[in-house]
Structures are given as C-alpha cells and as structure tokens.
Amino acid sequence: MSAHRQTNSEPAYNFAYLDEQTKRMIRRAILKAIAIPGYQVPFASREMPMPYGWGTGGVQVTAAILGSEDTLKVIDQGADDTTNAVSIRAFFAKTAGVAVTTATEDATIIQTRHRIPEAALQGHQVLVYQVPIPEPLRFLEPRETETRTMHALAEYGLMHVKLYEDIARHGHIATTYDYPVHVAGRYVMDPSPIPKFDNPKMNDCAALQLFGAGREKRIYAIPPHTQVVSLDFEDHPFEATKFEHPCALCGATMSYLDEVVTDDKGGRMFVCSDTDFCEGRRAAGHHGHLYGGETLSKEAAE
C-alpha cells in the first residue's frame, strides 16, 4: 500500500482493502464517467490481491463505492457459486464486513463478469462490470493515441465496416459477445464480454452501470435511463440471441441459457445461466422438463 500523504487520520486497516487515497482517485474518475456516458476515464489502477483475469477493475470500482450499509452480490457467468464469484464475495465480506447475498433483488451492489441478471434492476442498485478490454476500437487500431482521436471525433465508421464484413462473410453479424453499443448518441462503448442477448438490458436500465478495467486502467459508466443502442444496419438490424428450448429446470423461455453436461455419458441440458433467477422460478413452482427437485451447481455440472 502507498503511504498516506494526506492528513485525514486513518486506521491502519483499510475498509474494502483499498487505501483512502486510491478510493478518492477512483471516485473522482467515476464521477467523470457518469457525466460523460460511455467515455473511458483513465485511472491509476492498483495491484489487487488477485490475478487480473479475476476482474481487478471491477473489484476496485466496488471497493471505492462500497459502504457498510451495502448488500453485495457477485456473479460470474450468471452464477453466484463459481470460484471467482465466491472468492470476490468472501474478499469483501472479510475486508469490509458487508452483507452478501445471492438474491438479485436484495443486493445494492452487484459485481458481474459476463452477464446481466435476468431480473430487472432497480434505481437504488449499482451494477459493476469486470472488463478485460475496454476499448471497442482496439482490434481495429492498436494505438491508444489513435483510438482516443477516433473517440474525440466520433469517427466510428471502421466499427461499422468490421460488422459489415461479418455480414458479407456470414450473411449476418456473427459477433455474439462483446457486441459494441452506442451510448447516449455519442460514444461507442464495449459492454464487456456479455452475450449480446444482454445488450437490450443496458438500454433505459434503472440502475447505474459502472465498468472497471484493471489491466487497461479505465473506468466508464452508463447512468440510469440512458439510451444504449447496439450497432447495426438498416438492412441488418440488431437481433438478440433467441433460444430454441426453454430452461430444462425452470421452464423459462426468456432467459439466457447455458448448455451443461449432466452425466459422463454425454447427456446435456440447457439451463438458465442466471442461477438466482432459475432457483427463484423453481421456488415459485415453475418447473422444466428435467426438474427433479435438485439445485444445480454450475461448477459441479461443468
């Protein structure tokens, strides 16, 4: 930890791990990110006691906004019980003493990797995304100075060219994850590797959405009730993924499904990726064709 050069008297123990100086720097970045929706604010990312792949950007954003009154939920690919989600939840329970939950509706802060919960989020909630690569133009232009200029000029033609190449090659836009969005009519933004199924949930969402990229040192935001449009073309409009099957456990027909192996004989089934949503539906009496009273642990099944 860096020395505290400012004069606020502070205990040796850091609430939520980060020192106060780092939190203030991240907080200032968050305020700018909210004021300029979709713009990537640089910040001085700190080392966290976990590997980068575990979402240190999201962890730092959560640490900077978290208070003792918060209730935290952490999901990884929609599930609360993966190693990554369990570890991050335990990290904040230990370093901040906050309440944790797996119930989407009970959470005030939800940190996520690769999914948006199925349940509609509320105005008092904050959704924090773990972002590996925040720059949507990076694969078109590796130089940071160039992408920054492209954003400054709102020069997004190349982005459309890339998507159009998809159409030329596949007959449709083949990008299914990390599908770029246009925020509030200005910045093109990377939504993190969520499935494009989730993209429509970002639009007019009641909750504040914050994005943290640790390795690339960027924070960006979508305020509540902000227009978020997935890039598309008049003759090839954006289409969210649709599933042919309902969830085998809860029968849901409107959720994002994962294919999971059920036994060592190659048996498979499609179940909700959002485990809290699926369990809630089963508890409410909705059952799919393979429901047998079990609760499925995603890690156990994989």
């Binding site: 609430f15 907080r27 909210i34 504040l208 509540p224």
Partner: peptide
C-alpha cells in the same frame, strides 16, 4: 475539525454525490 470517521464519512458523502450526478 475534519471527519472523525474519514473512511465512513468519505464513502457516505461520495455515494450521495454519485447518486446526485447519476440522477
């Protein structure tokens, strides 16, 4: 005097400011 509880008071103040700018 400044904050008696700088960690908690800074966080509470920031969260209110964050909500204000977000709404």
């Amino acid at each position: 005097r400044g904050f008696d509880q700088p960690v908690a008071q800074s966080q509470a103040t920031f969260r209110a400011v964050m909500q204000a700018l977000a709404n």
